[in-house]
């Protein structure tokens, strides 16, 4: 517990001193979204139909960018080994890391969502759906992504590999989250999709820390 709090504090300070690490993926996220109207068509009707999907695909990519660094530095400088040696369980570390990752990637994306909704002419009825789907869905991305980051942390140039491992696992989140926004933009109920996202979040909270912890233990065997 002591080490969990100390790590939260240490990594928060690190993020504050290295703002590029989490601001760059956010800027990337915004740029990707701007590219869609430029590449496809700026008509409001069309944009409002694809808005949910565009935001969510961009969110997946932005999440991946910041995931790669989640454990890499800690594996390289021995912090991970030190945590392992402290006797504190590694799944606690996995939870702390996922929480930190969500705070610097998923949370800002969620807070930015109303702005994006305006830019992409999302119908008023879908604002809340976009916000809620991001709030429930992005933590799942951080938790699942943590497993991939733990598996690839010791591999040189692992960021492309990480994308290959993790993107297929993101499919259900993408489908239900973008589906919720789509339903909402048609004025249909979307609580079912949000409930699915909530269920996935609970499942990910319960299971992914164990998988991450098993993957982190492998780093010592290399």
């Amino acid at each position: 517990m002591k080490l969990m709090l100390a790590t939260l504090r240490r990594d928060a300070v690190l993020a504050a001193r290295n703002p590029g690490e989490w601001l760059n993926p956010l800027a990337f996220f915004l740029m990707v979204i701007v590219l869609f109207p430029l590449a496809v068509a700026p008509e409001p009707d069309f944009l409002s139909r694809i808005a949910g999907g565009v935001v969510w695909v961009a969110a997946l990519l932005a999440t991946l960018l910041s995931l790669d660094m989640l454990y890499r530095a800690d594996v390289e400088d021995g912090s991970l080994e030190l945590w392992h040696a402290s006797g504190e369980p590694l799944y606690a570390l996995a939870l702390v890391k996922a929480l930190l990752h969500w705070c610097i990637s998923g949370l800002p994306l969620t807070l930015l969502s109303p702005l994006l909704a305006v830019m992409l002419h999302l119908p008023d009825s879908a604002y809340l759906a976009l916000f809620l789907s991001l709030a429930l869905g992005t933590p799942v991305l951080s938790l699942l992504g943590g497993v991939g980051a733990a598996l690839t942390a010791g591999i040189g140039g692992g960021s492309l590999l990480l994308a290959l491992l993790i993107l297929p696992l993101y499919v259900p989140v993408l489908i239900f989250a973008a589906g919720a926004v789509y339903q909402a933009s048609l004025g249909l109920p979307y609580t079912g999709e949000l409930a699915m996202l909530g269920a996935m979040l609970s499942l990910a909270l319960a299971l992914t820390p164990w998988a991450s912890s098993a993957a982190l233990k492998l780093n010592g065997l290399r």
């Binding site: 080490l3 240490r10 400088d77 402290s86 006797g87």
Partner: peptide
């Protein structure tokens, strides 16, 4: 064989984490 020292942190901050237990 690696000492887990983070470069952006000060010596105190690093040592505080290292001795968190």
């Amino acid at each position: 064989h690696t000492v887990s020292v983070k470069k952006p942190l000060t010596a105190m901050e690093n040592l505080r984490w290292l001795c968190a237990m």
